[in-house]
Write a protein that binds this DNA or RNA. Structure first.
Length: 422
RNA sequence: CGGGCUGUAGUAUACCGGUAGUACGUAUGAUUCGGGUUCAUAAAGACCGGGUUCGAUUCCCGGCAGCCCGACCA
């Protein structure tokens, strides 16, 4: 399910998607424009996108990075069901449309009502109740990757905000506030590692946001970009920000920040973590017996990342006028190999060598396309390394060009294999 | 959920109350071959329903869909 399960190579002649010159009507969001034009995603309806082969590869690589960080932090991957029963959600008071107005609901043939999950606290609380009874059972940190459904009246900004989206949600179940706090801090660094690894760490800041009923603040991870919908006040030196929703003099003082060094920025919320206290454990009677045999409520925390939104944010931040610029860690392929003119045979041989050596390579083996089209497509798709073999290329050498640079350089094949290793 | 705008080939667009035109893409044949080459030929289109009218893709009404602003949210 991670990137390791993908083929490491692909011929463009076998890929059914096509790039387009024109921007689809009405899509003003840069992430949607580029991802649609390059054939990474397909728009099913407003706020609902299918992931095509190239796009899925990026999504799954992001998933792989998040999984790695969650597992390192002690997470246990599982999968909660999408269909959720009314009864479970009534326990927390969140079934009613008065409370949550964006539920997708349906009916069972047998008469019961079900909802398509729009978040996971209830599902996890309900499951864990059956397994947690002693302090020896805690702490636990289950998580899943899952499609989430929200009946938004207004989807917008391409894949940044949809009616259906793919997320990772982890829930922490701890014995005490101290134990919870320790894990919460661990998640902060896990999240920072994730955003660093997908290539936007330099622009992503931990941000104090509204905390709800059990803690003063929650923490959002906000990526700075003009395409953002959120407004934050950032202290660039300290790397800390405050969301506009809690931006008051009192909060600034409490966080010991200097109002004069806070700068207003637009940003995208790429992740958030918050403490839930006993908000769900009490209604679900999720308790454990401590060493003294006393019944105690479990302390919960919630940690979410929308993967499509994260992917869209990377596009917003890292693309240039010619297309996307993927970091190696989440690029659909590391290399984009272009054969020009009569060099198709030589390129075929090189392609096989790259495949054999385990390099991820997308091979433009189309015989009926001109050089200009092939270069334009390579720029749009945005693999980190472009390799060209054409009439101007001396035998035994290839042209090597990082996507982020203007000029290519001649390298021999042995050198190339070195340059393309992670 | 309030407000605004828009629905024409696969995509992007034009004109028009009376044979719907162009570009990209696609097919065939030439041409070209290092930044979307040039040419010929071909296939392919008016969101749905109602109304006005001799005649509606065009005007009117309703529906549905899409985009944008606001509210709300990963």
């Amino acid at each position: 399910m991670g990137a390791e399960d993908f083929n490491k190579y692909m011929r463009l002649t076998k890929l059914f998607t096509k790039t387009r010159k024109e921007t689809p009507t009405g899509e003003t969001a840069k992430n949607a424009e580029l991802l649609l034009r390059a054939g990474f995603i397909f728009k099913e309806m407003a706020g609902v996108y299918s992931f095509l082969p190239l796009g899925l590869r990026v999504l799954k690589k992001i998933e792989g990075i998040i999984r790695d960080e969650m597992d390192k932090a002690g997470g246990l991957e599982m999968q909660t069901s999408v269909l959720q029963s009314k009864e479970v959600w009534e326990q927390s008071g969140r079934w009613s449309d008065e409370v949550v107005d964006n539920w997708f609901k349906s009916k069972l043939k047998t008469g019961g009502e079900v909802g398509l999950s729009f978040t996971n606290e209830e599902a996890y609380s309900n499951i864990l109740k059956q397994y947690i009874s002693s302090y020896k059972d805690l702490p636990v940190y289950p998580y899943d990757f899952k499609h989430i459904f929200r009946n938004e009246v207004r989807s917008k900004s391409g894949i940044l905000r949809g009616r259906e989206f793919y997320w990772k949600a982890l829930y922490s179940f701890s014995r005490t506030d101290a134990e919870h706090a320790e894990f919460y801090e661990r998640m902060k660094s896990s999240y920072q590692a994730i955003f660093r690894r997908v290539g936007i760490g330099h622009l992503t800041y931990m941000t104090f946001a509204s905390g709800g009923s059990f803690s003063k603040f929650s923490h959002e991870f906000q990526a700075i970009t003009s395409a953002g919908e959120d407004t934050i006040y950032l202290d660039e030196k300290l790397g800390i920000a405050i969301n506009k929703e809690v931006y008051t003099d009192e909060v600034i003082d409490e966080l010991k920040l200097d109002k004069n060094s806070l700068v207003e920025k637009k940003s995208i919320e790429v992740g958030n973590i918050f403490s839930l206290g006993t908000k769900f454990s009490v209604p679900f009677d999720l308790t454990y017996q401590d060493e003294g045999g006393q019944k105690q409520p479990v302390i919960m925390g919630s940690y979410g990342i929308g993967l499509g939104r994260l992917m869209g944010t990377v596009v917003e931040i890292l693309s240039d006028e010619n297309g996307m610029v993927w970091p190696r860690s989440i690029a659909p392929f590391t290399c984009h190999l272009i054969a020009l003119g009569e060099k198709l045979a030589q390129a075929d041989v090189l392609y096989e060598k790259l495949v054999q050596s385990g390099v991820e390579v997308l091979y433009d083996d189309r015989a009926d396309k001109t050089a200009g089209e092939k270069f334009a497509d390579a720029d749009l798709i945005g693999c980190p390394v472009r390799i060209t073999i054409g009439g101007k290329t001396p035998d035994g050498q290839v042209e090597f060009k990082p996507r982020s640079e203007k000029e290519s350089q001649l390298v021999d094949e042995a050198e190339l294999l070195e340059l393309t290793q992670e």
